[in-house]
C-alpha cells in the first residue's frame, strides 16, 4: 500500500503552520531587536525572573492548583454516583454533564459576571435577608469559581469513564474476600480509578494555568495570570520578544506537568469525551 503521498500536503501544512510558528516563538524569545536586525540575548528570560513576574507565575500555578483540587473534591463523588449501578437514566445524566461544556466558554464566564456583580443576582438575594451587598467580583475567589465552573466536567468525565469500565466482579470478589464498603473503595475502586483521576487533573490544570479570559473578566489587576501577561505583550505592549519568552516558559510548564501526569496516566482513553 503505497499511499503515503496522500499525507504529503498535510506534512507541508504542518511544517508551515505548526513547526515554523513555534520556531519563530523560540527565535523571538532568544533575541532582541537591534537597528540592523536581531541579536541573541537571554534578557527576555532574565526579565521574567523579576519578582513581579515570578509572582504572576506563582499565582497562576496556585490558582490552577486550587481549582484542580476543588474540581477533584466536587467531581469525584459525582463521577462515583453517576457510575454506580443503582443510577437510572445514566446516559441522560451524563448528557447533562456534557451539555454546558459545549456552551460557549465566554458565555459561561459571562454568566458569573452577572451573578456576582455588585447589584447582581446573588447580592439581590442576600439583600432579601438584610445582608449588605458585598464585593464578590475581581478577586482570586471569583477566578477560582470561574475555573471550577468551566472545567468541572473535564474532571468528572474521565473519572466516570474509568469507573464505568471497572469489572463489577472485581468488586464482588473483594466483598467475597471480606472487604466492607469502605475497604472496597479504598483498596479496589480508588486505585483502579487513578488513571481517570490523573487525566482529569491534567484536563483541568492545563486550561486553568493558561487561561486569560476568566482572569480578565472575573479577576482584578492588570497582570493577573501568566496568560494575561502573554496577551498584553502581544496586544498592548508589543514586546514580542518578552511575550515569546513567557510563552516558552508556559509551554515548558505544560510539558513538565504533562510528563509527570502521563507517568501515572497510562490509560489514554481515560479522557474520552465523545
Amino acid at each position: 500500500m503505497k499511499r503515503r503521498f496522500l499525507a504529503y500536503p498535510y506534512l507541508l501544512w504542518m511544517l508551515i503552520f505548526i513547526v515554523v510558528p513555534l520556531l519563530l516563538v523560540l527565535f523571538y524569545s532568544f533575541t532582541t531587536a537591534t537597528e540592523d536586525g536581531f541579536a541573541f540575548t537571554l534578557d527576555n528570560f532574565k526579565t521574567f525572573m523579576q519578582p513581579i513576574y515570578l509572582k504572576v507565575l506563582w499565582r497562576s500555578l496556585a490558582l490552577a492548583a486550587i481549582s484542580t483540587i476543588v474540581c477533584l473534591i466536587l467531581g469525584y463523588p459525582a463521577a462515583l454516583i453517576l457510575s454506580s449501578r443503582q443510577m437510572s437514566r445514566k446516559s441522560f445524566l451524563l448528557f447533562l454533564f456534557v451539555l454546558p461544556m459545549w456552551m460557549n466558554f465566554l458565555l459561561r464566564t459571562y454568566a458569573w459576571l452577572t451573578l456576582l456583580e455588585k447589584n447582581g443576582f446573588i447580592n439581590t438575594i442576600l439583600s432579601v435577608f438584610g445582608i449588605e451587598p458585598i464585593q464578590l467580583l475581581y478577586n482570586d475567589g471569583a477566578v477560582v469559581l470561574g475555573m471550577v465552573y468551566n472545567f468541572l466536567p473535564f474532571m468528572v468525565l474521565p473519572i466516570y469513564s474509568v469507573l464505568k469500565k471497572i469489572d463489577p466482579s472485581v468488586i464482588e470478589a473483594a466483598e467475597d474476600l471480606g472487604a466492607n464498603q469502605v475497604t472496597v473503595f479504598r483498596k479496589v475502586i480508588f486505585p483502579l480509578s487513578l488513571p481517570g483521576v490523573f487525566s482529569g487533573i491534567s484536563m483541568v490544570f492545563m486550561p486553568a494555568v493558561t487561561t486569560f479570559v476568566i482572569s480578565r473578566l472575573l479577576g482584578g489587576g492588570q497582570y493577573m495570570l501568566i496568560g494575561n501577561l502573554i496577551e498584553k505583550q502581544f496586544t498592548a505592549v508589543y514586546d514580542w520578544h518578552f511575550g515569546s519568552a513567557v510563552s516558552i516558559v508556559m509551554m515548558v510548564i505544560i510539558l513538565i506537568s504533562m510528563g509527570i501526569l502521563s507517568k501515572y496516566d497510562n490509560d489514554r482513553e481515560g479522557g474520552g469525551l465523545w
Binding site: I18, V25, I230, F234, G243, S247
Partner: peptide, 17 residues
C-alpha cells in the same frame, strides 16, 4: 501539538507567523 499546546501559545505563534 495544536491539541496539547495552550491555545494562547498556538494563537500568538500563528500571529507571529
Amino acid at each position: 501539538i495544536p491539541i496539547l499546546n495552550p491555545d494562547i501559545v498556538t494563537g500568538v505563534s500563528l500571529m507571529i507567523l
